[in-house]
């Protein structure tokens, strides 16, 4: 389902970084652990096709992301990969509902406000549908960004430090929500975190700090 194999990446002027191989089957959930700066986000970006590796292969479902580029890659990402960013990245000029329908639109899928509302309902924030991101609390915005990640029914959900800004109770809640939504889509869930509180919430773990 997700297979990252022998991938090396390079940022502008820095030396190549070798990333560990990852292999996850459909429906499997995995934590990506390690201190800040150890390459967790980089690995997520590679998995999302946001960062093109220098070498190696990245397979999502049956597609090798290194073999497609440009519009095809953007389209594939929009339809098959849901991303929960560390900084949430909700679009401030759009309402919560519009943020979700924009995700449908950008992926080239038919716009379905009912489905978008259903996704918000699953995360318990349907009543915030017509609010703007700035009018939401941190926890509500976090849920909204998860709703946006799952609205297109992705096969792969990537989350980057989804709990770092939350208190204990909310951190566990968000983790539970991610797991639930991934199960609902039968998607692969990959969560990058340095948050010790989440360490034992999921059985499958890759520790980048130990690997390097």
């Amino acid at each position: 389902m997700l297979a990252i194999d022998a991938v090396e990446v390079r940022y502008a002027a820095s030396p190549k970084i070798k990333l560990p191989s990852v292999k996850l089957a459909a429906g499997e959930h995995c934590l990506l652990l390690g201190p800040s700066g150890c390459g967790k986000t980089t690995l997520l970006h590679v998995a999302a096709g946001l960062l093109k590796p220098e070498s190696g292969s990245v397979r999502v479902a049956d597609t090798d992301l290194t073999s497609i580029a440009g519009t095809a890659l953007d389209r594939f990402r929009g339809r098959n990969i849901g991303i929960v960013f560390q900084r949430l990245h909700l679009i401030p000029s759009l309402t919560i509902l519009q943020n979700l329908t924009a995700a449908q639109y950008c992926a080239g899928l038919p716009i379905d406000p009912a489905a978008a509302r259903a996704a918000l309902a699953r995360l318990g924030i349907e009543n915030k549908a017509d609010r703007f991101p700035a009018q939401l609390s941190q926890g509500q915005a976090q849920r909204a960004s998860i709703a946006r990640a799952i609205v297109n029914g992705p096969q792969l959900i990537l989350a980057d430090e989804p709990t770092s800004a939350l208190d204990d109770a909310n951190a566990m809640l968000v983790l539970d929500l991610l797991v639930q939504q991934a199960q609902a889509c039968n998607a692969v869930l990959l969560i990058a975190t340095h948050d010790a509180r989440t360490k034992y919430a999921i059985d499958l773990r890759i520790d980048l700090g130990a690997a390097s």
Partner: peptide, 16 residues
């Protein structure tokens, strides 16, 4: 830039 990059991450192409 963030917003546009987010749109890209959601599947929008460069042209869009």
């Amino acid at each position: 830039q963030y917003d546009l990059a987010v749109l890209r991450s959601l599947g929008a192409s460069r042209g869009w």
